[in-house]
Structures are given as structure tokens and as C-alpha cells.
Design a protein around this nucleic acid. Structure first.
Lengths: 338, 338
DNA sequence: CCGTCAAATGGGAACGTTCCCACCGAACAA
DNA sequence: TTGTTCGGTGGGAACGTTCCCATTTGACGG
């Protein structure tokens, strides 16, 4: 179609009969411009259909108005997907307010990891959001050293130095356990997440503390760990049933693993919730579709996304701002599995 | 920490004892540079830890090396999420090869829609990927008019003018119907998707053609339409059971709607698959978790994503290249619901 | 030994902004 | 009148590249 030459700020200036700088001032909302000049510029912009070139602007301001959201693919296997979708939605909401672009970066292997740091070094983004970090992941430290604003969903450890937002994993787990105990369950085992992730450890800790507070001892043999996958959950369930055949409840640290556990229980002829009660974590989409529907601990994932987005924007606009640590509440959702 | 002044191409040139241009040539892999000079430049780059500034480069080349993936939020409701995740994964794979960045754009309302066109006008992306377009969506035409390379996952109509990739919806639906007929079902109803989307229409068409080819007539009363949501699927099922109480099979145009339909069937005391056989479409994650597990038509979503990514890159590097239309095969996955 | 040619090289200009600073003129006090 | 101030303005420079073109260099045939 049309596509002649795109108008530049100079074209606009000429058309409006003012200088380059005045046009720039109008665009950027400066006060120091007369009503008359402003009107002329605005008219010229409209007539010429002028749109500022953000690349040129970025060159001089050294701001790109875009941030990266980094998702490790190892985690984005089928099961965790609803989690990431919700985070993305939240982040997107937060960014929309300031017209900041969202770069999505999936990391599957070392090459893609290098590419990310490369891309960061190229100054293609103003800040980075990191999701589901592992304890010894070098990435957060790297970004911190580069001085690039960085916010985490989750954290590497309880004394995380970067700004981060996470849900009350310990509290949520404890709530689940207390719920099971209140239902009269005597032996509440757990399938924990990976222990090299803080989510894994803290949910396990919540489970343990709640049991101990209720007077239960020797809980160690009631634990099996898995990797947040459905198969992992099934395998962990199997091993628990071997070790602790008398168990009558399981707190599973994710819904996806719980789905695997439910299948294994069915396979072994244990009915849920009559023989064994099960509570998951996340309230992801599959929780409503398992057989029976899964009781679970809901975490406000979309809100986490919105929050990390907002915090990152703050840190970009003021890098000196002190780091923030936010814990969001969880909520027990009781369905038919408990 | 360190963070002194970032080295520029000039710093590198000085260090290597060559001119600006030679450094640029080395970076861009030009042949026209002596071994000696190349080595010196490479050494200087390594010593100084130089990384080219992509914004500056973008200003002169007027390429940003990033593309936008646009997802209408109305579709990204819970149910369709696995679909989008898979598309994203595929796109990301295709883009990784050329170090092209992926901008994710969620569109929820008119404001965000405007923002997208704005952002496109600002030349922040080299091309656009559009997912799940509606028949009368103005966006594709707008992008086409702007002369911006655009590729669709799905299409607006069978004679789509833009490059696009879609799966064989008609064929997949027909396969599902034939499967049901082969199982001895007599009355195969359908819950279709929205009829203002080509996916909706073509799956319906596949269902109809297969029935007619098998000698069934007067199929119109066997159709109920819904909006790809679980609730919609339930409501459509209810209406079908009222209209056609004798039905013994349903082809549902998406797994999510099928989940709703299954729940409704159970509520009305019809057993699946004994009384009514059900086949869905997508093979999304929930298909394995419904009760009973859902037979479904799998479409290669990740491959669709990879394909639209690759085609877009081609169109960016050569805008004159003729538009492409790709149809990928589907595959019937038989589980327990049929 | 010289002209020719291709390979290798580097400086100027351009990409489209914003920022810095100098300037202009009107208002106002002395 | 003269000086001071300040809102309003615009030109030069800079941001860090790539592209165009002119120049240098070295090899080679006559």
C-alpha cells in the first residue's frame, strides 16, 4: 500500500513550522512549550500520521521499554504449563499499564542460556523476570552482577537477595496437613517437590512443622521426593505405599504429581478418599478433572505474575530502590479427594 | 559490578589497531578481511568483553530481530492454555536458530489492540504471528496493509490470503466420525466450536461430510454450537440430549468442551462409552485426565508453532516470497471414551 | 620495471531520536 | 532607560552501528 517514506520528527517540525526539539518536547509531554506550538505540532503529527521510532529513541535514552520473562523449559513440561500461563497473564497485565514490551525467553539448554545472557548484554531489555529458579542456578547472580534489574517469582533460598514474590508455601502446606488431621487421618505422608528448589523444601517444611506441632514424630520415613512430574508422582506414591503401607493420607506438593499419585493408588486398589485422602498444591486446571476431583492448596499465580511485573518496573525506573520480598497467601480448596 | 563504560566498536577498533569498519565486518562475518586483522579484532573483542549494541544496529539496518506473537486473551481462558503453550514452544524453537527475539502480546481489550498496532507502527518488530483469528478480525488485514510480514496459525477462511499453517481439521473430524461409526454407533451428534472461526466451521464440515458419505441424512438437528469452553460444552450437551435423546455418540470439537460434555452426561446418568461414546479434538493435557480418559484427535500444535515461526523468518528475509499455506495431518488417539 | 586489478581497509555520512546549552524576547523591577 | 529573570525555542552534538565509496596494498603478467 501507501508506504512512502515514514515521516520523522524533522518532517513534523517542518510541517508545524517549529524546531526539532519542540516536537520532541510535545511528544514527551514537556511543560515548556506554548499552547500555540503544541497545537501546531499535534496537528502536524496527526496529518502526517507520525509515529516516533522507538529504536532511535532507545539508542539515545538507552532504554528499550521491554523486559524479559525467562522460563526454564525443563519446568514447562506439560504439567506446569497452567502455572506459566497464569504468570504470563499477570505479568502482561502489569506491563500493559506502562506500554512495556514482554520478551518471552524459553530456556531449554546451555546454548539458549548463553543466548539469554548475550541478549541481556546487548541491552535488548531493561530488566528480567525469572520464574522457578533452582538453588544453584547461576543466572540470578549473573544478572545481579550485570546490574540489571531482576525480580524472581519464587526464590533461591529464604534469604534471597534479589527482589522476589512467592506464595506462602509453608503455610499452605501446613493448612493442608491440618485439614487432613482434622478429618481424622492418622498417618499423613507427603510427596515433596525437588529439594534443590526452595518451593520443594518449604512445602516439605510446612508439612513437617504441622505434623510435629500436632505431636507426630519420626516423620522422615513418610517422605518421598519427586520432580513435579506426573510419572514422578506415581513412582513416589508407589515407594511410599511400600515403605508405609498403613498411610491414610498424602499431601502432594503439586497437582500434577498428585494426578500421578491418584492413578497409582487406583492401580493398587486403594480408594480415594476412603482409604487414602489426597491433597495437592497449586489448584491448577487438572485438579478439577482428576478422579476424584482433587483437594488442593490454591496459590494466586496470576497475582504473583502481576506483582513481579510491577516490582520490576519500579526497579527499572529507580534502580536504587531497596529490594522487595513479598509473600502472598494461599487458600485451601476442598474437593472430593479428602 | 565493574560496569565502567561499555566498549563500543570504536574501542575495539583502537585496541585491535584497525578501523571501525573492519571490526564491523568481522562481527558480521564478511569475507573481505584478512586473517591477521580478523584475529586481532577477535582478540580485542574477547579482551574487552565487547558485545554489539543491537539497538544502534537496529537503527541503521531498520531490523529489530524480534517478532511478535499475538494471542487474543479471550481464547487464552483456562481451557485453551495447553494449546498456546505448545505453540509458544514451537515458535521459540524456530526462532532460536536465528537469534530472533519473541515478543509476547496478549490482547484482552480494544486498548491493548491499539497498543499492538502502535507498537507495530513504531517498528519494534520485524513481523507478526497471529494465533486463533476470528473471521472478521480486522487485525490481519491491518497488518497486511502495513506491509508487515504476518503469518497465521489457523486461517480466517479457506481462501486466506496471508501465509498460514493449520491442521487438517476437516480430515481429523471425519476420522473421528468414521471411528465412531466403525464402533457401531448409529446417531453421531456433534458439539461444534464457534462458527465465526474457521476451525469451528471446518471441524463441523468434516463431521457432516463423513456422516453424509456414510449415508446419513438430515444431520442438522444433530448439531449444537459452543464457544470452546467447558461450560459451553456442558450446555451444548444438555441441549443435544433434549433434542436428540437417542444419540449414542458425540464428536466434540475440543477437549475442553468435551470435558464439560462428559460431566453433563454423567449428571444425566448416561454412561460413557456404553450409552454414549465421546471423541474430542486437540489431545490437550486434560484429555488424559477426564473420566473416562478421552478419545481425541491430536493435532501437532508444537509443530504448527515451529512452522509459523520458520515461515515468518523467511518472509522477513525475503518479503517478495510468495505466501504459503500449510496443512498438517492430525491423528486419532483412542482412549476409553469411545 | 610498470601498469592493472582485486583484495583489504578506513573515513564520512546516515539512521532518528534526546540532551545540552545558548539564545531570544517579554515582563518586570530598579 | 537599563539590567535581570525566565518561559519558550532551536541548533549542535551524541548515541553506536552499517553502508557507501575512495584509497591503499600487494601480486602478477607483459
Amino acid at each position: 500500500m501507501g508506504e512512502r517514506q515514514r515521516p520523522t520528527i524533522i518532517t513534523v517540525a517542518a510541517r508545524a513550522g517549529v524546531g526539532r526539539t519542540t516536537v520532541s518536547r510535545v511528544i514527551n509531554g514537556s511543560e515548556l512549550v506554548s499552547e500555540k506550538a503544541r497545537a501546531a505540532v499535534l496537528a502536524a503529527i496527526a496529518e502526517l500520521n507520525y509515529v516516533p521510532n522507538s529504536v532511535a529513541r532507545g539508542l539515545v535514552t538507552s532504554r528499550t521499554n521491554s523486559v524479559a520473562l525467562v522460563i526454564p523449559e525443563s519446568e514447562s513440561k506439560l504439567g506446569s504449563e497452567p502455572y506459566f500461563s497464569a504468570v504470563i497473564r499477570g505479568v502482561s497485565t502489569a506491563l500493559a499499564e506502562t506500554r512495556t514490551q514482554l520478551q518471552l525467553v524459553l530456556i531449554r539448554d546451555q546454548a539458549e542460556r548463553d543466548q539469554l545472557t548475550q541478549s541481556v548484554a546487548e541491552r535488548r531489555v531493561d530488566g528480567v523476570l525469572l520464574v522457578s529458579v533452582h538453588e544453584h542456578d547461576p543466572l540470578p547472580g549473573l544478572l545481579e552482577d550485570m546490574g540489571l534489574p531482576t525480580v524472581l517469582a519464587g526464590r533461591r533460598s529464604p534469604d534471597e537477595s534479589l527482589s522476589h514474590v512467592h506464595s506462602d508455601n509453608t503455610g499452605g502446606a501446613a493448612t493442608a496437613v491440618n485439614h487432613l488431621l482434622a478429618r481424622g487421618r492418622r498417618t499423613v505422608a507427603t510427596i515433596s517437590g525437588p529439594l534443590d528448589m526452595e518451593v520443594g523444601r518449604s512445602r516439605l517444611q510446612g508439612w513437617r512443622e504441622a505434623l510435629e506441632k500436632a505431636g507426630h514424630q519420626g516423620t522422615d520415613r513418610l517422605v518421598a521426593s519427586a520432580d513435579f512430574t506426573e510419572e514422578g508422582g506415581g513412582a513416589a506414591m508407589r515407594s511410599l505405599l511400600e515403605q508405609v503401607p498403613e498411610l491414610d493420607a498424602v499431601f502432594v506438593a503439586s497437582d500434577v504429581m498428585a494426578a500421578g499419585a491418584l492413578a497409582e493408588l487406583r492401580r493398587q486398589g486403594r480408594s480415594v478418599p476412603d482409604d487414602v485422602a489426597v491433597v495437592g498444591f497449586d489448584d491448577s486446571i487438572i485438579a478439577r478433572h482428576t478422579n476424584p476431583p482433587l483437594s488442593t492448596v490454591r496459590q494466586p499465580v496470576e497475582e504473583i505474575g502481576a506483582m513481579i511485573g510491577r516490582i520490576l518496573l519500579e526497579e527499572i525506573s529507580d534502580p536504587e530502590r531497596p529490594r522487595r520480598r513479598v509473600t502472598l497467601p494461599t487458600e485451601l480448596v476442598v474437593r472430593e479427594s479428602s
